[in-house]
Amino acid sequence: MRTVQLLFILLGVAGLAYWFTMGGDSQVAQVPAEPTSAIVEITIPETLSDNARVGKVAFEAKCSVCHGADAVGHTDVAPPLVHKIYEPSHHADESFQRAVSLGVRQHHWPFGNMPPVEGLTRGDVTMIIAYVRELQRANGIN
Rank of each mutant, 00 (worst) to 15 (best):
Q5W: 09
F8R: 04
I9L: 08
V13F: 15
V13D: 15
G15W: 15
L16K: 08
A17F: 12
A17V: 13
Y18P: 14
F20L: 06
F20T: 05
F20R: 09
T21L: 07
M22C: 02
G23R: 03
G23F: 05
D25T: 00
Q27N: 05
V28H: 10
V28L: 08
Q30G: 13
Q30Y: 11
V31H: 13
V31A: 10
P32T: 00
A33K: 14
A33T: 06
S37D: 13
S37Y: 11
E41K: 00
I42R: 00
I42Q: 05
I42F: 04
T43H: 11
I44P: 15
T47A: 10
T47G: 09
T47K: 14
S49F: 11
D50H: 00
N51P: 14
A52S: 07
R53Q: 14
K56H: 09
V57W: 12
A61E: 13
K62Q: 14
K62V: 02
C63S: 03
S64I: 03
V65Y: 03
C66S: 00
H67E: 05
G68H: 04
D70S: 02
V72S: 08
G73H: 04
T75L: 03
T75V: 10
T75Q: 11
D76S: 09
D76E: 10
D76N: 12
V77F: 05
A78L: 04
P80S: 05
H83K: 06
K84S: 14
I85K: 13
I85Q: 14
Y86P: 15
Y86E: 09
E87K: 06
E87V: 03
P88T: 01
A92Q: 08
E94D: 12
E94C: 03
Q97D: 10
Q97F: 07
R98E: 09
A99Q: 08
V100M: 09
V100E: 14
V100D: 07
V100A: 10
V104Y: 15
Q106E: 12
H107R: 14
P110Y: 08
G112H: 04
M114F: 09
P115E: 11
P115R: 07
V117H: 15
E118W: 10
